[in-house]
Amino acid sequence: MIRYDLTDSVATVTLDRPEAMNSLTAEVKSALLEALRRAAGDDQVRAVLLTGSGRAFCAGQDLREHADNLEAGRGLAGTVREHYNPLVELITTMAKPVVAAVNGVAAGAGASLAFACDLRIASERAKFALAFSGIGLAPDSGASWTLQRLVGAGRAAELMLLGEPVDAARALELGLVTRVVPPDDVLKAAGELAVRLAQGPTRAYAATKRALAYAATHTLPEALELEALLQDECAATRDHRDATRAFLAKERPSFTGR
């Protein structure tokens, strides 16, 4: 259901329902949230890699379970507030960089999870689909917030209203993904990127994530003030002191995340 591995300070979290294109049941969503919380709270983890097994990254909500809920009169059964909202909030606010290895189809909430990550490496076979309107639903899992920050309001409206799939090449052109690689290389490329981040200044990365999210919804003076506060915090870190010494000595800095 969910596989968790910690290697080289990278926690790899894998959605493991390949027979169902890694679609999300209530059980899977709970396990995914638990795995991400584990990664967020573990000081040995300095970067997170999120991916799927088989031919899909994640096909979104498990529609068989959803249909059963509709038949039973339970509708969405609170899954947006109980599952999706905490997942997206955790990914976007985690004090560590999160990389998505999009190995195949990312649809609905699956696409939203990828968009919530800080960086996305996509297979040439990857496809993104904001399929909410196609089944008479509004966007969820933070897509209304993340997507327009990636591609702009106009493109976000187009992708959500029309629900047409976006292939990897178009996703790269739009800015949805960081890089596109051959299918056999996606996990390797994403893993190398995650390891690179795990070897970097973790607290500076956390401050960068916080500054970007804050600046998106605040005025310039407010953003400047937060930048000043965050810079003071980073200036007091061991990583900053050691990196400054290394720079002056013309050496390559070695970061500890402290």
Results as ranks from 00 to 15, higher is better:
F128V: 06
G136Q: 07
A153C: 06
F128K: 01
R125T: 02
I135H: 04
G134Q: 12
E124C: 04
I135Y: 05
F132K: 02
Q148I: 12
A138Y: 15
T146L: 10
Q148N: 13
G152L: 01
L150Q: 14
E124S: 08
A153T: 12
F128T: 03
A131P: 00
A153F: 14
S133M: 10
G152K: 00
L147K: 07
R125S: 06
L130Q: 08
G152Y: 01
G134E: 11
G134K: 08
A126H: 03
G136H: 07
E124W: 07
W145K: 14
A131I: 07
A143G: 04
T146A: 12
S144M: 14
I135C: 08
L150W: 15
A153K: 10
G134S: 10
V151I: 09
E124Y: 06
S133E: 13
L130R: 07
A126W: 00
R125E: 07
V151C: 03
K127I: 04
G136R: 06
S133Y: 10
A143D: 13
V151K: 03
G142Y: 11
L130V: 07
G136I: 06
A129Q: 14
A138E: 12
A129H: 10
S133D: 11
A143F: 05
R125F: 03
L137D: 03
R149S: 01
A138T: 13
Q148E: 15
P139R: 01
A131Y: 02
G134T: 06
L137W: 00
R125V: 02
L147I: 09
G136D: 07
F132C: 05
I135Q: 04
T146G: 03
G142C: 04
W145N: 13
S133I: 08
T146E: 12
G152H: 01
L150C: 10
G134M: 08
